[in-house]
């Protein structure tokens, strides 16, 4: 990461995020004091066994789950303080600032590739004609412009995931959350998709946070974090545990 980027404020700043479910004897701590900074251009991975808190963390960053405590800033805006949302209309925040990429692409099966991308633009208030034009541009950028009129069922896994990435980028969000983005792809296509995500992060100054179990693509990430019993550990890309991540050492590439 260049010094210039290292000096920029992080796009995602988490401080002491905790989340527990249940109380007393049934209490389960899904996240314990997680702190993390992710800057523009970074692609980071969240690893961990089932129930370790990966999805919980992704849901909180995606503003769809209330944390128990902690604070969060997204793209320079304070959205969470002391476990309370301070930003009204979180749905609009998601529409404008966060792009989502899913394991099974989650494209609308009744819309063709172009309309799947244009939908997000129209939801944000873009004129339908302009939305289509920008959707086509994005599809071309992700090299699936030739499948612009195809329905999701007619696309291969890799093509569908590219369309899903185009949809995630439609409103030019600077934070992209990806849930197992390559799990449904073979290693070749998984590599292509990850290269695309890296390209997006660099060219569009975006921060990408991906939950993954896919060891084939570990080398595509700038930083890898392991969640274990709700605690975040930083790891090297070969899977070796490196350092505990705290507020003092966030943002350092391993």
């Amino acid at each position: 990461m260049s010094d210039k980027k290292a000096n920029q404020p992080p796009l995602v700043r988490l401080r002491d995020l905790s989340k527990h479910f249940g109380e007393a004897e049934t209490r389960v701590d899904a996240l314990r004091n997680v702190s993390l900074d992710v800057r523009a251009g970074e692609v980071i991975a969240l690893l961990g066994p089932s129930g370790s808190g990966k999805t919980t963390l992704l849901n909180i960053i995606g503003c769809i789950l209330d944390p128990s405590s902690g604070s969060m800033e997204l793209d320079g805006e304070v959205v969470l303080t002391d476990g309370r949302w301070v930003r009204p209309n979180l749905r609009r925040l998601r529409l404008d600032k966060i792009g989502f990429i899913f394991q099974f692409h989650n494209l609308m099966p009744f819309l063709d590739a172009t309309d799947n991308v244009a939908l997000v633009l129209q939801l944000a208030g873009t004129d339908p004609r302009e939305a289509r034009r920008r959707a086509l541009e994005l599809l071309d950028y992700l090299e699936v412009g030739n499948r612009r009129s195809s329905m999701p069922a007619q696309l291969s896994g890799g093509e569908a995931q590219r369309v899903a990435i185009a949809r995630a980028l439609a409103n030019q969000p600077r934070i992209i959350l990806a849930d197992e983005p390559t799990a449904a792809l073979d290693s070749k296509r998984a590599g292509i998709v990850m290269d695309l995500l890296r390209k997006v992060a660099v060219e569009r100054d975006a921060a990408i946070i991906a939950v993954t179990h896919d060891e084939k693509i570990f080398d595509r990430f700038d930083r890898i974090f392991n969640l274990r019993d709700g605690r975040l550990e930083s790891m090297s890309s070969n899977g070796m545990k490196s350092i505990m991540v705290g507020p003092g050492d966030v943002g350092e590439r391993i």
């Binding site: 995606g62 769809i64 749905r91 609009r92 925040l93 998601r94 529409l95 404008d96 966060i98 989502f100 899913f102 989650n106 609308m108 099966p109 997000v120 939801l123 944000a124 949809r167």
Partner: peptide, 16 residues
């Protein structure tokens, strides 16, 4: 359900 959940997640308003 899945499509509606996706719409909500990507920020579609309730009226949609």
């Amino acid at each position: 359900l899945k499509q509606i959940a996706t719409l909500k997640l990507i920020g579609a308003p309730d009226r949609t």
